[in-house]
Design a protein around this nucleic acid. Structure first.
Lengths: 343, 343
DNA sequence: ACAGATAGGTTAAGCGATTAACCACATTAA
DNA sequence: TTAATGTGGTTAATCGCTTAACCTATCTGT
């Protein structure tokens, strides 16, 4: 099994120079003559030497590691990351990875439990940046504010988030577009289905768009048109029972595709027709949406792009050597498929 | 912003002891009196000291990092990880994370490009273990064999994989069950849809099961019943055209749910009925399958469990201090939903 | 009463890099 | 001629922790 990994010392010895010279040539610092460089490179080649990232991290202070944190599912026997329940996260991560990888960074995925000290993780690992996906309790932000590391928050509107990079989508506009679409199809009694609206302004803003469109059409949204559940397939499926029983909406705007899919399932399974008996428009445009039957009409956000932009913001700060705080706001677009129809 | 992070030296000074004493108490080595321990803990508390994992890695030699590598999508403008195309991976990772997290390990996600040196990554990061999901070219295995680190391979039958931990599912049995089910429903001309069969014995073994069931029923599988495409929604959707045009099968066993979903979409979209016009049974039981309409009949493997077991194998080796090679073979089960029916 | 064990600590040498400071020699400028 | 500058290198401290080796004082058994 593996010969001992070569260290910079081995290289230096083999090339007959000091470790400093090896380090300088490796870091492109012009302090070494071409001939010596040549010898050093040959030694490196022969020993198959690769510098230890750990050692570099310790001496340079940067780990080449970007952390991505995902919310943990709040319920269930074995708590897992939301990654397990919503394809959204996989797509997002894939976007991040595509840019970090070619910049030489690796990504660390972690679920965040609200009771653990998030900043400890960041500091102990000396992460070069962190991307926090989704909503977290305020205390977490108080905590990370004190860490001197680039941070991007996705989908976080709360005021205390303005110290960080943010990438989001025009949620209100998205909600507005969704409902506008439904109104144009002749729907009047339109429901809003969402995850918790308390700890997520995202859901609230989508609601605002929903409300605005309704109001413009001279309709006052009623309390009974509002449905709240977990943002999972199961959550959508569960809340669909309510929706069906109450029978007071002809269409719903659902704040997440994944819930929308659960809802549709429930209806179809009970012999109802979608969009015949209920029109539904989702939000996100996760890949699966277009492969459903009916194809899911939804408000699209470019998830991969969201990941890429997040990663690029981190890279920018790393280049700058300090934390900045940009906002990148994606434009949503309406993708009309087959889960909505005229009343 | 952040006060400088406290080091073990600061703690030692504050507690009035040597750094060694601090280190010993922290590592539970019984060499420090209760009173001194008390002082040290108080200093730690006051300084909010957390040991640097980087430094620990350098001196102890283990990084508390587990790498998970995923195949990169072979096509597309912006290459991303398969994570982006198949919910399977998110579920798997979630399973891994649930055990590694409580063991104090973080996971590193990386796409693997065939042209890069995989072992370099592992060694430079000093990973404590790696989990390779899916199929890779043989050269990669030659390479990792020389690394002295726990390794688990999922879904890899090839002979050179026997040096490593493996976790898989009884693929042949799964294929057999799928086809048996179809046969019982009266189907005779049954197709097999798969990703590349060349570089994946998984797909081949599922095929064997398929073939075996057919042969037992006195049916010889024909060349035209075999369909090969990318393992993505799009791949399934694309190959469905062939299937529909040829019109020589009444049912298909599809080696991955994700392709099955694409196929169903294509048929339904063209006014065909599923399972009326074609019965389809998938493989995996990704979560979305049960929320489709029709619900996807499939061969279930417990993906989360697969992730958990993989992680536990790594943990076992780490505990042992050496690489071992177990095999864990999950039993598949048939989940009958609505995408199959009697002929 | 004395050797040997034990309890409780300290010192200092790594782990594998980076980098400021220093040095010797050859050029160049005044 | 002499001081300043540049070239190509080396030495050694440092990053933050672990741990073998060493030390001293007290305790134990005979």
């Amino acid at each position: 099994m593996a010969e001992k990994k070569a260290t910079i010392r081995d290289v230096a010895k083999k090339a007959g120079v000091s470790v400093a010279s090896v380090s300088y040539t490796l870091n492109g610092i012009d302090k070494v003559s071409p001939e010596t460089k040549e010898r050093i490179f040959r030694a490196i080649e022969e020993l198959n030497y690769k510098p230890s990232l750990t050692a570099q991290c310790l001496s340079k202070g940067d780990s080449k590691l970007i952390g991505i944190s995902l919310p943990i599912t709040e319920k269930g026997d074995i708590p897992g990351m939301l990654l397990e329940n919503n394809p959204f996260f996989g797509e997002f991560i894939s976007g991040v990875e595509s840019v970090t990888r070619k910049a030489g960074y690796d990504i660390l995925i972690s679920g965040v439990e609200t009771n653990e000290h998030y900043s400890d993780w960041v500091m102990r690992r000396k992460l070069d940046g962190i991307i926090m996906v989704g909503a977290y309790p305020k205390s977490i932000f108080e905590e990370i504010k004190t860490i001197d590391v680039p941070i991007v928050l996705t989908d976080t509107y709360e005021d205390y988030a303005s110290d960080f990079h943010r990438v989001m989508v025009e949620d209100e506009k998205g909600g507005y577009m969704a409902v506008k679409h439904l109104l144009e199809l002749g729907h009047r009694r339109i429901g809003y289905v969402t995850g918790s609206i308390d700890n997520s302004l995202v859901n609230y803003n989508r609601y605002s768009g929903y409300r605005k469109a309704l109001l413009e059409a001279g309709i006052t949204p009623e309390r009974e048109w509002f449905f709240e559940e977990h943002v999972t397939f199961d959550g959508g499926y569960a809340i669909a029972k309510d929706i069906m029983e109450k029978q007071n909406v002809t269409a719903v705007f659902v704040a997440a595709d994944i819930m929308a899919i659960g809802i549709i399932k429930y209806f179809l399974e009970r012999g109802k027709n979608v969009p015949g008996d209920i029109s539904v428009v989702g939000f996100d445009d996760i890949k699966i949406g277009q492969y459903m039957m009916p194809g899911l009409t939804t408000i699209r956000q470019d998830i991969i792009m969201k990941g890429r932009v997040s990663a690029e913001m981190i890279m920018k700060d790393i280049g700058l050597g300090r934390r900045t705080n940009d906002s990148f706001i994606l434009s949503p677009s309406l993708v009309i498929r087959d889960s909505t129809s005229a009343l």
